[in-house]
Design a binder for these strands. Structure first.
Lengths: 197, 197, 197, 197
DNA sequence: CTGTAATCGAGACGGTACGTCTAGTCTTAGG
DNA sequence: CCTAAGACTAGACGTACCGTCTCGATTACAG
C-alpha cells in the first residue's frame, strides 16, 4: 500500500485492468492516511496512482464509492463467541475501537460518514452497510437469546444499534482512546437491561 | 430568517455591525435549509447576505464556526422531568428527533459533525459541545439516582452517552423517522440495565 | 451518407474491410455536416461509424488525413471552357462558391485549412493539394494565352493563385454569399490586368 | 515578453489588475511562439503567467478573445505612400510578409483564422477585423483614384480584398517566403487591371 | 472639530478540485 | 492480419469555491 507510483501501466485490452484498480485503491488509501479526509480528492488519488481521472470515474462514480470499497476490502473486525454476551459485545467493541484506532480504517469510516452527509449515494450506501452490520452484530444477541441469556422478546437489532451507535459516536468525536473498563461498563448497562428477570 | 437581501447595509464605523452579523447568520441558516450541507459555502452565504467574504472571515474563521454559532442560537430541546427516568429519556429523545426532523437544526448539526471530520477546530468545538450535552443529559440520570431509581454506582454521563449516541447515529443515517415505540424500547433496555436490583 | 450506424459489421479476415472504410468516411462526413468542425473528433466519428478508434488510426493517421480523403472523394467543381477567360474564371468562382455554400464541401475544406494550422501533415497535404489546384486552374489561363487573350509572359499559376485566394478568403470569413456581380468584377480586374495591350 | 513568472502578484482590490492582464497576454504570446497553435491552451497560458484559470476566463471568454487582443496590441504594418499605387501595394505586401514571417504575428493571425473556424465569436471578430483592414488598405487605392491613377468606378475595397486574400492564403499555406519579385508581379496584374485606359 | 482607525460591500487575485471530453496507444477475442 | 470494442494514461476544458488582498466609502471616537 502507498507505493508512490506504478509507472508503465497500460490498458490490457477491452476489459478492466485489475492492476489499475488496485493501484487506485492503494493510492486512495495512502492519500487518506497521509492527508486525511480534507486532502482526499479524486485528483490526488489519480496523481498518486498515476491513473487518469476518467479511469477512476469509470469505476467509482464518487468519492463515496471509493471510500466504501476501501473500507470493505480492509480486514474485518472479528466477532467473538465466548458464550457470554457481555464478554462478546465488550470484546467486539474493544476490537473495533483498536481496529479503528490503529489502522487507517477509522479514518476511512469517518470519511465515509462525513461524505454521506453531502452525497445521497454515499448516504444510501452507508445506510445499507450499517443495516448489514446491525444484522451481523445482532447475531451475537440472537445466540445469547438461544442460550436463554437474553429475554425472548428482545429486539436484537435494536440492541446492536445501541452498541454500534456508541462506537460510531466515539469515532466521530475522537474518543477511540476510551478506557476498556468504560467500554465494558457501557456494554454491561445494555446487557443487564435485556437480561431476563 | 432567510430574507433574500439587506441591500444598503454599510459600515457603522470602527466597530462591528450587528446587522451584518445577523444577516450573515440568517443567510447561513437559509442556505443550509435550502441547499443543505453540500450547497453550504462561504460564497453562497456571502451572496445571500449581501456581505463581503472578508466580513465573514473576519468574524468566523471557518464554516465550522458559522455552523456552531447557528446551532447554538437555535432553540434548545427541553429536557422533561416527569419523575420517571424512562419517561424522561424517551420524551427527551422523541423531542430531539422531532426537533431535528422538523426544523433546520438537524441539518445544521449533521453538517457540524461532517465538518468536524475535516476541521480540527470544528472537532474541538463539537467535542466540547457534546461533553456539555452529556453532562446536561446526565442530570436526568442523577435525578433518578437521587430518587433511588438508578443504582448509586452508575456512571450517569456514560448512560447519557449511550442515549445521545443512539440519537446521533439516527441523525447521521437519516433514520429520524424512527417509531416512537422503538425509541422507547431502546430507552427501556438502557434504563432497565441501570435499575437497582 | 450519414446513416447512423452499420451495426453488425465484422472483420472480413486479414485484409482491409472496405465496408468499414466507407462507413468511417460516411460517418466523418455526417459528423462534419451536423456538428461542424468543432464537433469533429475521432471519437465522434468512431461512435457514429460503430468502428474502433484503432481502426481509424490504422488507416488515417490524423483528422487531417480523414478530411483530405473526404474532400477528395466529393464531386469536383467543373471548370468551364467558354472561349472567354473572364467568363471562364467568373463561372468557375461562382460554381465554387455555390458548391462550398450548398454542400458540405465548404465545411470540409474550411476544416482542412484550420487543421493544417495545427498539423504539419495536414499542412503538407494542403500545400500539395493547393499547388495541384493552381496548376489545374492555371490551365484556363494557359488556354487564354494560346488564344492570344492573355499576354505571353504572364505567370498563369500566379493568376490562378490570385483567383483562388479570393475564394479561400471568402470561405474562411463566411462570405460565400458574395454577389455574383462582385465576383465577376473581381475577376475582371485581374483579367484586364493580364490582357495584352 | 515570456519571462517565466511574476511570482507575488496579488489582487489590487475590487478592480482589474493590469499587471495580471499584461502577464497573461505576455504568456499567451510566449506560449504561441514556443509551442505554436497546437500547444496554445488556456491551461498553458495560466501556468506560464502564474495566473488562475478563472482570471483568464474572467476577461477573455475564449482563446479567440486572447488571440485577438494579442494580435491587436502588436505593432501594425506601416502602409507606404510613395505616390505610385503599384509601389504602395507591393511595399505593403512585402512589409506584411516580412512582419508575419519575422515576428510572432504570423502565428497569432494564423491561429486566429484557425480558431475562427471553430468559434463563432472568433469568426465574428475576425470578420470585423478583416473588414476594417480592407477599408484601411482600400485607402491606398482611393488615393490612387484621386491622383487619376485608378479609374473612378473601381471598387477600392474589392481591390484591397484581392490583395489581402493573396497575403492570407500565403500565410495559411506557409508560403511567406515568396519572392519579392513574384509579389510585385501579382500586384502589377491587379493594378494594371484597374488602371484607366 | 478634525484625523485616525476599524468596519463595511465589493470583487479581483492565485489556486485547487470538480466532472467531462478527446487524444492516441494497447490488448483481447473473434473472423 | 484484420475487425470491433473498450480500457488505459494524459491532459485540456470551463466552473465553483477557497482564503487573501486591496479598494473606496462610512462613521465612531481620540486628541
Amino acid at each position: 500500500m502507498g507505493e508512490p507510483a506504478a509507472p508503465g501501466r497500460k490498458s490490457i485490452g477491452a476489459k478492466r485492468n485489475p492492476e489499475s484498480a488496485d493501484a487506485i485503491l492503494d493510492a486512495a488509501e495512502a492519500v487518506l492516511a497521509e492527508a486525511g479526509y480534507p486532502g482526499f480528492s479524486i485528483e490526488a488519488v489519480a496523481r498518486r496512482a498515476r491513473a487518469g481521472k476518467p479511469t477512476i470515474y469509470r469505476w467509482w462514480p464518487s468519492k463515496a464509492a471509493l471510500l466504501i470499497e476501501i473500507y470493505q476490502r480492509q480486514k474485518r473486525v472479528e466477532v467473538p463467541d465466548t458464550g457470554a454476551l457481555e464478554e462478546d459485545l465488550a470484546g467486539f467493541l474493544v476490537n473495533l475501537f483498536a481496529h479503528w484506532r490503529d489502522t487507517s480504517s477509522g479514518n476511512v469510516f469517518r470519511s465515509l460518514i462525513a461524505e454521506a452527509q453531502s452525497d445521497k449515494a454515499a448516504a444510501a450506501a452507508l445506510a445499507d452497510y450499517a443495516k448489514g452490520r446491525r444484522a451481523h452484530t445482532g447475531r451475537m444477541i440472537e445466540r445469547a437469546k438461544a442460550r436463554g441469556e437474553v429475554a425472548a422478546d428482545i429486539d436484537a437489532e435494536l440492541v446492536a444499534d445501541l452498541v454500534a451507535s456508541f462506537a460510531w459516536t466515539h469515532l466521530l468525536t475522537n474518543r477511540l482512546d476510551e478506557d476498556e473498563a468504560t467500554i465494558r461498563t457501557a456494554v454491561r448497562y445494555v446487557v443487564q437491561g435485556v437480561t431476563p428477570p
